[in-house]
């Protein structure tokens, strides 16, 4: 099974909404690091403290903690996923109230996602919904 087939199996809406793979498999960084602009580290609030997590942010798997990461970077809550120049936007996905993923908006209005340890893709925000990551929980901008 190739990576596109794998992706479409996990995210059934992506194929119909359109997406493209823009970089190869890379376990070095994850989605939240990528959304925060860091492609050199894996950000994780793991209880064993093995991974990087921003100082002064609650080290737990909660929407509150994930939002706080971006609030520390100057983001605040917004209601629209539309492109609003000059704002940068990020979205946090959640499943059963647990954060699962983060995407960031591109200049084109499309969204960019690092898919776990796997590839980077560009996609419409709702393309990932109803899939492995659950749904968009909140959008923030700065």
């Amino acid at each position: 099974m190739n990576v596109r087939e794998d992706i479409e199996l996990h995210f059934p809406d992506l194929e119909s909404k359109g997406y493209k793979v823009v970089s190869p498999y890379d376990p070095i960084y994850n989605c939240i690091a990528w959304a925060a602009g860091d492609s050199g580290r894996w950000w994780e609030p793991d209880p064993m403290g093995i991974y990087y997590w921003p100082p002064d942010v609650l080290r737990e798997y909660s929407i509150t903690a994930y939002r706080a990461v971006f609030e520390k970077l100057g983001f605040s809550q917004c209601d629209s996923e539309d492109l609003e120049r000059p704002f940068q936007k990020v979205a946090i996905y959640a499943k059963s109230r647990k954060p699962t993923h983060a995407s960031r908006q591109l200049e084109s209005g499309q969204w960019a996602s690092k898919m776990g340890k796997s590839v980077d893709i560009e996609h419409p925000l709702q393309g990932l919904s109803r899939g492995f990551y659950g749904d968009v929980d909140c959008i923030l901008r700065k």
Partner: peptide, 11 residues
């Protein structure tokens, strides 16, 4: 089975 998982705790 964990290639798209974004958190190490799940991995």
């Amino acid at each position: 089975e964990t290639q798209f998982t974004s958190t190490v705790i799940e991995i």
